[in-house]
Amino acid sequence: MNRPVPHPTRHLLMIVAGFALWALAFVLLYGTQATGCKAGWHLVEMGPANLLRLVLALLFLLHLGAMLALVRYLRRQVVPMAGPVRFLNRVALFSAWAAIASTLFTFVWLFWLSPCQ
């Protein structure tokens, strides 16, 4: 039998952490876009962009940062050479990378598409 693992729930939740951040980014960016349009943030010019695009960009970068932090945390985790903890750690790590790629591909449009038309 394998040795007991101290935090089974945490290890299990880690495998969805990357995509959970992607989902959170989705909800926040879509919600902010709609709310910003309602509030007229897109009409507030701020240099080459407008307030809404800046807020969206900030949210996007924050999520990317959080995902990179997750990858860093998973890479630094001390895990056994084999067994379920290692398996889950690898799944969590590659899922997180996939989530980062998904985040870039899904939301990169916020830098140039019109937010309110």
């Binding site: 992607w22 449009w109 598409l113 019109s114 937010p115 038309q117």
Partner: peptide
Amino acid sequence: VIAMAFLSFGLWVHHMFTVGIPHLALGF
């Protein structure tokens, strides 16, 4: 499978592309 599960929750508006949604949301 995990990726597919999450991504599948981010597509619901593709059934609503013709209802009048801003370009950015369409892009997402």
